[in-house]
Nucleic acid binder design. Structure first.
Lengths: 284, 284
DNA sequence: TCTTTAATGTAGTAAATTTACAAAAACAAT
DNA sequence: ATTGTTTTTGTAAATTTACTACATTAAAGA
């Protein structure tokens, strides 16, 4: 909830003096954010500590922190809030809502991803002799995307979206094999079994999945991603965007680890497909 | 202009030490607004007055005032600036940069997508007797994702990431066929030819691609998406996220058009895969 | 190489915020 | 009404924070 609204709704919970502070802030919030605690105290005709206590009552660290929160709530509207699509939303409305929800999801995901886990995953990937990407259902396209990306790195890669092929591939796994498993829930039985099978064959298993899930526990290394999935919609949407972005992060880490010479070869891959394209008009 | 963007664009005008401050703030603006001038100075490895001078250079009264502005810019408008990954970025830094760039890309994409085009695409899709999704290279996983999504709608769908199959499929196309082509550049020769072939066979062609591209011109309807693609990285990253989100938008429009009864069948699809999962501990 | 100018840091100062504690007010129970 | 208790509020000191003036260092130009 927006800070200004919070003050409004908590008005009855405040003490007499605190309410005076609230009144002053509600009357001219723009003045409040630029005032010092002394000025504001004088305006509300209370003591400075009262203002400070008022701030703490609103779950802020103190006066400066409170001003920060207030400033944000004054900056028209909260940015990317996951908003549910309504029955009677027009194209304009649902288009915006979906995009904003996606951005909000990425933001949540970003905060939940542990960079150290990313770093260790990059370690494992750079040392791999062979990388396999596995995903079922909605995650199969994620696995395909990963394959497409790492393929350009001139590393042996495969990708499966079929349980039987995954299992067969695990049987042939060796110490140099690295498997990357994608699963939003981390509870798909088949995937958990595949992870176990792979580890039994000494392969390294990186899971990109939910925190504290069976798959996360079964993997050598788990990059856990928290995504506020829209439960109204019966289709996973936000999770795959988050997973794809994790792929980008891993790919970036990979190229950074390999150094500048490696990037030249990427450039050549890109140039290889140039001929298949229509020239872009150069005068634009 | 948003403070964060202002820092980004003024980067060259700053002195060496000021740039260090800018880097720290851009890397984690959320940390910056909660830090004291001393903490920030230490993080950037500069002196406190340098931080202060940095603030003034951005037309603020001083450090606290700067934090207020920054807080506001994080709240409204575009908080996420597309930022390039540096050679010496640590895991923490590049993880954040990639996520933020992705969010910034989605924001740009959102502003460029025409909701009316979306609406017309939904019209066409709801009336389709058969839907095919085509994508090559990095777009093939996008097409797969679309297939997975629309498959749940109990509509006949196919998906190809192979030019020959695409062409064969076009030959058999009829008036009720709808093709959805994904291409970031809209300049892939093969795709443009496929679009032409399909239209010659009276199929409807929806292109999700770049504005004013050959493919956009060749299609019955184009949903044009503008994406600030990072040209340093020789791999398309942001574009596919934008295209996937467009799929979500189309899928949402589709379900809304079909009405509430339709959603029950989606629910059943979801329940069908429940058995394949480990139960989630209910006490959490 | 020397001079000039710009950039950066050090140390001290002023301001603002917070803490600890005491006074006052409100409330309850005798 | 009066006393004891709790809550609220304010005072004053301590601490943290930000800023200013000046010194030093680095860079640029002659």
């Amino acid at each position: 909830m927006n800070t200004l609204e919070k003050i409004q709704s908590n008005l009855s919970n405040f003490s007499k003096s605190e309410r005076k502070v609230a009144e002053v802030i509600l009357t001219s919030p723009q003045t409040a954010i630029h005032a010092s605690i002394a000025t504001l105290a004088k305006m509300a005709d209370v003591s400075e500590p009262t203002v400070n206590r008022f701030c703490r009552r609103l779950d802020t660290k103190g006066f400066p922190d409170f001003k920060l929160h207030l400033a944000q709530s004054l900056a028209n509207g909260t940015p990317y809030v996951s908003r549910h699509v309504d029955e009677d939303d027009g194209p304009d409305s649902y288009t915006n809502k979906i995009f904003e929800s996606s951005m909000a999801a990425l933001d949540t995901a970003r905060q939940s991803v542990d960079p150290m886990a990313v770093n260790r995953a990059v370690d494992i990937l750079t040392q791999a002799q062979h990388i396999s990407f596995f995903g079922l259902g909605a995650s199969s396209s994620v696995a395909h995307d990963a394959q497409n990306k790492f393929f350009r790195f001139n590393v042996p890669v495969t990708c499966f979206d079929d349980v039987l092929m995954m299992r067969m591939s695990c049987i042939n796994a060796t110490t140099g094999s690295v498997l990357v498993l994608f699963s939003h829930t981390g509870r798909t039985k088949a995937m958990v079994e595949v992870a176990k099978l792979a580890r039994d064959n000494n392969a390294q298993v990186i899971a990109i999945t939910a925190k504290d899930s069976p798959l996360a526990r079964e993997a050598t290394l788990a990059i856990t991603v928290e995504v506020p999935e829209d439960t109204d919609m019966f289709i996973p949407m936000a999770s795959r965007l988050a997973h794809l972005t994790v792929i980008d992060v891993l790919a970036t880490g990979f190229t950074l680890r390999r150094g500048p010479r490696f990037r030249d070869s990427l450039k050549r891959v890109k140039e290889a497909i140039r001929e298949s394209r229509f020239e872009k008009p150069s005068h634009i």
